[in-house]
Design a protein around this nucleic acid. Sequence first.
DNA 1: CAAGGCCCTG
DNA 2: CAGGGCCTTG
Length: 800
Amino acid sequence: MDSPTDLFGDSAPEIHAFAPALSSTDLPGVHPQPSAGRPPPAFRPPGFPLIHHLLQPGGASRRIGGQLNTTLSTHRHLEDRNLEDDGGERDGQVEQGMEGGEEGVMEEEDSLLEVKKRHSDASLAAEWSQDVLKVKRMKLESRQRDGEADGEASEGGRRREGGREGKRREREELKEQLEEARERLQALQEKVWRAFGEKHMAEEEKKRMRRNGNRGATDRGSRDVGMMEEEDITEGMYDEEDNDSGEMEKESFSLLSASPFDNFHTHKRREERQKEREGRMERGRGGGGGVHLEGMMEGAGLWLDCGGLVRGDWDGGIEDEGEEGGQKFAQALKLELGSAVARVIDRVLRLYTETTDFTPSSPPATISFLPSDVGNDAGRERGGWMGLLTRGRGEEKTRGKEEKMGGQDGEREKQLQKMSNGSIVSPGQSHRTEPSDLTMPLAVQRSPDIRKAHPLLGPPLSAHLNPSHPNLSLHHPSLPRPPPLSHPPLLPPASQPKDPSSSFHPSSSSSSSSSSSFPAPPPPPPPPPPLPLPLLHYSMQQLFSRSLHHTQLAHLPPSRKDYLSSDPFLEFSSHPSSHPSFPPLPLLGHLDPSLARHAHGGRERERGMRGDGGMRGGGGMDGGELYLTAGGVYTQEGLSPCHLKKAKLMFFYTRYPSSNTLKTYFPDVKFNRCVTSQMIKWFSNFREFFYIQMERFARQAVREALTRDGAPRLGRESQLRVGRDTELYRILNMHYNKSNVYQVPERFIEVSEVALREFYSAIWTGRDSDPCWKKGIYKIVCKLDSPVPDAFRLPGCPVG
DNA sequence: CAAGGCCCTG
DNA sequence: CAGGGCCTTG
């Protein structure tokens, strides 16, 4: 069995403190999957060992997965338990522990177990519910026994426990210590909350009051104990990380839970303490003869997940090994408590220090990516790496590094290099390395044109046209996209190319140090991929991601308080739609209504994205297990039609997404090799379609020009448009945005135009006789990728 | 060798 | 779109 150190080892450090008491698979409605499809342990979300020990005696996460509804509906009827007993192959780990510790209690359980073992593994749901029931039963029984010990002479079974008075006392003490530590932790946490999220506290306090009022009546009756336990357990199932999809669900079957804003921790702990107190009183009345089940059970859903330890080691340890076990347990307990406290403090400190870096006064470096996140909607201007890319062009040595800004761009650069290393000579490539481009950064050279000219029309392009070498003149008007004017401080168009290091991410500045003034220390390894969180640990990024998205979109770094109010402690226990951590209404406006449904607690997310508002394509046919990531997002194996839809929309922004990019923008997908390549394949297909259309229309244009004018005039490319009124646009929109719910970004139109003109030019100049004449165009188009709007980072399908 | 990309086919 | 083949790249 797991030793305490195993249980509380590094395997689950993060989760412990704020962990859900159940794994990500604890979602109702997820395909029953009786025997097949049992996810290998490897797929179990890391960091849930305790939870599994505690709540999945059988040790298989799939047991719980998807069975909650059934479970909760069934395990309300204690008496049905036997009927549903079908234990199957449990490893008996927990049972044994419990048996060891609660022999009296377990007498009945023993026999039940025997029965269970004989049963076939017919129903996983029943299995799980049975587990829950047993827990409840044990608690009930323990209480009853406490009462018995009080009133009547001890029975045989009871007598056995008489000799354990000392141990029991010790346990009592240990438990007190645990309690104390718990209290301290809570106090600490509450301090944090007070400091960072007063609003939240108030809210939560209110709810708590309400809730306490509600439950006061039933709280006493022992007959409701089962229900209370049920609630405890179910709460534990969802706990923090589950909150935004789980909250409402939980409410639906939790008799007592009331608020979508609940803070589970506080509630739970308070209730637990209260119950514990009650329990102690009861035990006190009962002469202390009762088995100390209360605490154990209460530990189940606990913040610290001590339950696992208690059950796994307390029982086994103390009962089996006596004092030694108790000592062990005590030590383990202390260790864990210590480390838990340390973790909390560490988190708080880190949280505090790091979030201060996001205040409005933070250095530009931290927010230098913001421009690229500005203007989510169509026609948004892109600064970001695009500007860098342009700026560094011609300096082959620094180019790659500079383009690595933003993580995904590193991948992109790889792709670019791949292509440029190809055998074919790309006109685009050749002109880019021409001296004229070297002498002056493209951004400076061309941005005025671009801003003056209509983005879709030719002027900027034709201005550069060399009448005798049309193919060489096909610059890409959108490539040297100037930084948005709305962000002069960040990307002063004039100065940016000259001193990029002054306004860009440290990593980029240092990487471009070869040509600039900054000696700069070795750049931080990989730039924080999509999020401007250079100072945040990855896990923190995960935790903050949602709130960051919204804050980024809001352009305004939130006040620290706001920021902190979305700290991980609270993040996953609050109602998404109104919590600052969730996209505010404006952003939700960009999102699929169905996403808003998700945000309101629906469990639909688990069934795949509901894309495009209309659910055309019947989304949600996903299939596959659900997993809860460290970021609190449910992932699923396999891709749904909605994922496809989202991917298509993403194509408007990125034609060559790296697998990392895909992972960032599909947080609800559990990526494995298969899924990744499938999605890459999608984009490959998208590109194919795109290029085919481009070629088709280019050829048609050439034909038309030939027939109409006799010979295509030079510079005619400039007249090639992909306006929203064109057939080509219609076709593209139809393909990538079938439902037309999403507004095709202007940027995509520009890219299409570039591609179209490239094709046109290549065809007209006869380059298409070269077997790989398209490669050059691919390479050009590849460079026109732009960042994907942040709305795509959210699970679900953006609209707008 | 794996990952990606393109091409072709169904 | 998915599969398979082929190629390039690291």
